[in-house]
Every structure is written in structure tokens, then in C-alpha cells.
Design a protein around this nucleic acid. Structure first.
Lengths: 168, 168
DNA sequence: TTGAATTTTCAAAATTTTCTGAAAATATTT
DNA sequence: AAATATTTTCAGAAAATTTTGAAAATTCAA
């Protein structure tokens, strides 16, 4: 397999997988393209490479920046804006986790709390609904904070080795 | 807030959040409805409650069963099929993690391996692409197996307390 | 069997999401 | 300040996904 072929396969796969996670296909493909590109790319290059419109490229580049996954790079003597991706995959994972937390975990916990606060009562059924809502908050918080500490401690051999005790 | 109001709010929120995760809104709402329902429900009841068509209910009930989140329940003397949700939220989380692993993690690792195997070479750029692909596999495997061990060991105070050391 | 109740299927319709491309806005150079 | 290059916006088009509902298949009882 030649380099270009491998890149294309990666970009294509990454786009397909993204849709399963509720992420826009084109956004993922642009991200993948930049991840694999040794140089920064401008909008025209991305348009040509992925065969998509200028508007589409522009919109998704800005989305990727808001996720903190790519950065603008101004090249000396160049009028156009260039973009580079964060290449450290651990940083990428940490950044995605952080954003998903802000955009998704917080709203879940917020709504559960709202309902919990407003739904007072001690009939059997109310208690049961409250129990489920409590458990969901609990599991969500656990998953969230655990992901935090793991991403934060990723290079920490103590945690890493300790976790191994619980594998399989 | 009354019981019905709280339930509706929960069901609605759950459906909205689901779409952000790439999960069908109706599927989530049916799941939420069954989670909160003390009795098993049949297709007609779900249709009435959520105001959706029979075909839609049927399709999503079968999806939820394939995820292992709900079960058929045959009531004595009843011709219709009834459905109940698994109510233990930890089991639900474990089941979702397990299914996502099978459906999403494995394909990622598979494709990365394919590319890795086929893309031999030692130009600088090939090496860089291989490095990125390796790192992605690495991070994915780490996240995957860590999630496994945590869900498996969820009630283990030792792990839980150890993890606390790494919070914040 | 036959017939009624129930579930499943799936083509077409509705809805939602994504994408395009040209016009408007902004930035830079002469 | 005018001309040129570049980026951004956004209404309408296209594509993808979800939903409907009626027909077909299945199940069960008489």
C-alpha cells in the first residue's frame, strides 16, 4: 500500500466512524487529513483534497478550532490562513473528553438535578423515579471524573500499573 | 412538579441528549419510558404514550433488545408482548459499554491494524503516519480496557478509592 | 383448518442534517 | 481610496435519516 492510499483509507474510515458517535463526517475527515499532514494546509488545499465546497471547509475548520483540535497558523509571506492539527494523540483525547464533558455531561447532570429538586414526594412510584435519576447522576459523575483522572494521570505508572490489576 | 411531568421531562431530555451521541431519539425515549415504568408495557401503550407509529415502536424495541437494554416479558393470559427495561443503571452502563466496544472500538482497531500491516516503508512521512496510527490504536486500547476494568470493578472500594487520589 | 389478534416489513413521505455556491463582509496591498 | 485577495455567511439544494401506515407474515385459539 502506498502512502496516499493509506492516508485515504484512514481519512475515509475516520469519517465513517465519526458519524456513529454523532460527529459530522466532514469535520472528522478534515481533522484526519490535518493529523496526517506534515505541513499546515489552507482552505483551498482541503477543498481539493476532500472534494468539498469552500463553505463546508470553512464551517468545519471553525468547529474544529472550537473543539481545540486544530490551530490557525500564519505563514510568513502568505496571505492565506493555514491550519495544523494537534499531533499528540493523548492531548487530542484529553481535549475531546474535556469538551464532551462541558457540552454533554454537564447538561445531563443539570437536568437530573432539576428534576430531583422539583420532584418531592413519597409515593412508591415517585421514590422509584428518584432512585433511577439518582443512579444515573451517580454513574455519569463516576464515568466523568474517572475519565478525567485517567487522562490526567496517563503517564503515571502507579495508576497505570494499578489498573492492570483489574484487567480481565 | 408532578410525577407525570417529571417523567415527561426525563424522557424528553434523554431523547435530546441521545441524538448528540449518535443514538436515535425515539429509541432513547422508549428506553427512558420503560426505565421509569413500574410495569412492563406493550407496543400499543408505548405508541399512545410517545405518540408514534407502530412500525417505529416495533423497530426500536428490537434495537433495544439487541443492545441488551430491554427484555420481552410474556404475561400469563395476555396475547400481546410486554417489555421491561433493565433497571440497574450500573448494568445498563456496562451493557452499553460492552456493545459500543463490539460495534465501534473493534472496527477502529481493525482498520488501524490493516493500514499498519500494509503500509511498510521508511520514508520520514510514512514513519510519521505509522506513528499517528499506532498512537490512536494505543489510546483506543487503553480507553477500552480501562473502561472494562472499571465497570467490572465498580464495586471494588480499593480501585474506587485509589482513583480518588488522582481526581483534580 | 379458519379466522382473529398481533407482529413485522418496507416503500414512500416527512423530517433533519449537511453541503453548496454565490454574495457579503473583511483584510491586505498598491 | 480603489483594487484585489481571502474569509464568512446563509438561503436553498441535496443527502441522509427517521417515521409512517398499510400490507404481509406470523401466532394462537377455537
Amino acid at each position: 500500500m502506498e502512502l496516499q492510499e493509506a492516508k485515504d483509507k484512514f481519512i475515509h474510515t475516520w469519517g465513517t466512524l465519526a458519524t456513529q458517535w454523532g460527529i459530522n463526517r466532514t469535520m472528522s475527515q478534515i481533522h484526519a487529513l490535518l493529523l496526517l499532514s506534515p505541513q499546515a494546509l489552507n482552505a483551498d488545499q482541503i477543498m481539493a483534497e476532500l472534494q468539498i465546497s469552500r463553505g463546508n471547509v470553512n464551517m468545519n475548520l471553525r468547529d474544529l478550532m472550537s473543539w481545540g483540535l486544530i490551530f490557525k497558523q500564519l505563514l510568513p509571506g502568505e496571505r492565506k490562513e493555514y491550519f495544523v492539527a494537534e499531533k499528540d494523540i493523548w492531548k487530542v483525547a484529553r481535549q475531546i473528553a474535556k469538551e464532551r464533558k462541558r457540552r454533554e455531561i454537564e447538561p445531563i447532570l443539570g437536568t437530573m438535578d432539576d428534576i430531583k429538586k422539583e420532584l418531592k414526594g413519597d409515593t412508591e412510584e415517585k421514590k422509584e423515579v428518584l432512585r433511577i435519576i439518582d443512579e444515573i447522576s451517580h454513574v455519569t459523575e463516576f464515568a466523568d471524573s474517572t475519565m478525567d483522572s485517567i487522562l490526567k494521570a496517563e503517564e503515571n505508572w502507579l495508576l497505570t500499573n494499578f489498573l492492570k490489576l483489574f484487567k480481565n
